[in-house]
Design a protein around this nucleic acid. Structure first.
Lengths: 228, 228
DNA sequence: CGAGATTTTGAAACCATTCAAGCGAGGTGG
DNA sequence: CCACCTCGCTTGAATGGTTTCAAAATCTCG
């Protein structure tokens, strides 16, 4: 059975170098995170773990973060990848239902829930934004369900590449920090199928894979059409 | 291609017989819905439709409700079934991303979002409850993802039956108001596979199906074990 | 009872998985 | 510097579970 193996040797977040951040302004879907502090994580470092107390809200400043759960049968379900500007770690109860790890060196802004709750109680706009963030997560989860429900391996992989390209804001040249196993656990495929599918897309000329984690989108329209 | 065909003839909600409801109290995950009104829907009636303005929040008083989306490829994805006491129709933007229909005669409490937002702005506990409801939906969606990710048809159907039994609060005798197509669209299987799987479970003595929508759980432990 | 819809069953086809082996880059030690 | 090892990725062949297409059986309701 698969188990994620991460070297935890260099997985220690910078402890002392925390510095408050001044948010000049914050839009509709942004919180006044000047409450929070930025923490730095090394590649593979755990930001929080499944079952831990959930007393913070997180926002990616730079780098990539993956959130995942270990299911009862031992499988790993990657719930999502988070890029700069995106929030994660929003939970209902007192404990995290998922774990979060830095895919590469990452900076993450961390806000205490208590501080946020206090602020939300005083400011309706903050409460409304919190609510909106939760709902956005809900929508992403529903998209995930739709993706898993009846898509072929090809459609899943193509959709994944387009989604990543859009969120990373690149036109063609994708630098993906996650492994094939990460993709497989997100798309609910096996790593062999992911690899095979990528090879097939390359053979069809839709993409090019100079290095395994560097994927160039050669024909976006065909990829988009593939996802319908 | 499948298309849901519902007779919309008798699908008109009672128009005038709206009456305010007095909520004696409301717990942690309940809203003071005395703001709302109870509306009655006939079998198959649409409570709201995909794309419509989302200016209300809904709570099932009696009966069953299904929420679903029509995907780009024309398939129908049932997002969930909602029983008495459960909320649905929580959306982020201005429009519903899903449709909701009554599976049978159903009573639904309806609250205007504007009223709720006003209340939430004044009362922190209401805002917090709204937030919690959103997160609960998020968790359910994540469970849905986990279910779809690597479960066999057998595990899905068994898990579905147990979930329904638990939520309907029955020990053995399940009265399911939804069709095989509804189950299939929720579990992401075909109706043939759902039917075959139920027959198989019956052959193994785990369940009994006196009538197609009446399922008796004969061996809960074996069913639970099946889902791990 | 009869007509239409829903559900069940059967057989063949398909797609992803599984098991197994080969490839290639990065790192260590001789 | 090269041999060697490891780890992640790729490729191949066989298996198996779900889907698809087809048809029979059952239920519901006028």
């Amino acid at each position: 059975m698969y188990a994620a193996k991460i070297d935890t040797a260099n997985a220690v977040p910078f402890p002392a170098a925390l510095f408050p951040v001044r948010a000049a302004s914050f839009g509709d879907d942004d919180l006044p995170m000047d409450l929070g502090q930025v923490m730095h994580f090394a590649r593979g470092a755990e930001i929080f773990g499944q079952g831990e107390k959930a007393d913070c809200l997180y926002k990616v400043v730079s780098g990539w973060v993956r959130t995942y759960r270990i299911l009862r049968d031992g499988r790993r379900q990657v719930e999502g990848f988070h890029l700069a500007g995106e929030y994660f770690g929003i939970e209902a109860g007192g404990s995290h239902r998922a774990s979060a790890e830095a895919l590469g060196p990452a900076a993450v802004q961390v806000v205490r829930r208590t501080a946020l709750n206090d602020l939300a109680a005083r400011r309706g706009d903050v409460a409304a934004t919190l609510f909106r963030l939760a709902i956005q997560g809900l929508e992403r989860a529903h998209e995930h369900v739709a993706m898993l429900s009846h898509k072929t391996a090809c459609e899943r992989v193509a959709g994944f590449l387009l989604d990543m390209a859009e969120r990373a804001d690149v036109r063609t040249g994708l630098e993906l920090p996650m492994s094939r196993q990460d993709m497989a656990d997100y798309l609910s495929l096996t790593i062999e199928t992911v690899s095979r599918t990528l090879s097939q897309l390359q053979a069809e000329g839709l993409i090019e894979i100079p290095k395994s984690r560097n994927i160039i989108l050669r024909n976006r329209e065909a990829l988009e059409e593939m996802c319908e």
